[in-house]
Design a protein around this nucleic acid. Structure first.
Lengths: 128, 128
DNA sequence: GTTTGCCTTGACGTGCGCGTCAAGGTTTAG
DNA sequence: CTAAACCTTGACGCGCACGTCAAGGCAAAC
């Protein structure tokens, strides 16, 4: 399949896929006219990248997982480097949780003084 | 005092102070030669900004607090707009905590399968 | 032939909070 | 007189994961 179809199947954009290639995550065959050609294995790679990004890993962090899949392993997280990324990320998450708890206590304490009771409006948030 | 001394007293840089001014957070008097001139009230403002940033608020979010202090209030968080920022931030923090808990569960589950037991190395982390 | 819809590379834009020069003016110490 | 240490504005850089144009090539339908 070509880049447009891979993007559609993976639910992403051609720009993202070309960016992954520029970062060394994705390697495509080229047809005679210079078009990129992908197979189901590449689709699998893209989905792996997406699920790891959803957990908060950077593209750099997904490299060991991609390499693991390329090495023939069934899952991308069965290699030592991948598991090391998991451990590092877990430590980061724990640190963040602790910090956010502190921040939460602070905000609650500040709001405790005579709150005029307005309805809050939840929106999106940058974390992890 | 001039910008260099204010920066030293507040533990920041002249670049940051000029940036605050460009964002409408800080307004300085000018001496005859064009130098910015600050007083203790400005130092107070800068410290307010810093403490709010430490809690994870953006510069934009600190504006109501600065306005509140400028309006003559003792503390920057005694005005309705400031408290509204607190409430919104609290909602964001709560959402982030929930999300990070989910991520943490995921990472623990993935690591649960035959961990070769390597020592983790805690580093800095982007959160809030 | 030409329009349509793919594809290519390249380069600049985004948000945030400044850091880091660059090129110059001012004031003080020696 | 000169050097040092301040100050001024302006403009570009950074990290991250792409978005968005620009200018053009390729293939199939009309």
């Amino acid at each position: 399949m070509r880049i447009g179809e891979l993007a559609k199947r993976a639910g992403t954009t051609t720009r993202a896929l070309r960016f992954y290639e520029s970062q060394g995550l994705l390697a495509a065959q080229r047809t005679s006219n210079g078009y990129r050609e992908y197979d189901d294995h590449d689709l699998r790679l893209v989905k792996e990248i997406q699920s790891l990004q959803a957990v908060g890993l950077s593209l750099e962090d997904t490299k060991p997982f991609v390499a693991c899949l390329r090495a023939g392993h069934e899952s991308g997280d069965s290699c030592p480097d991948s598991r090391e990324v998991y451990r590092r990320k877990l430590a980061e998450v724990d640190a963040c949780l602790e910090r956010l708890q502190t921040v939460r206590e602070f905000l609650l304490a500040r709001l405790a003084f005579s709150d005029p009771c307005l309805v809050p409006e939840p929106k999106e948030f940058q974390c992890s």
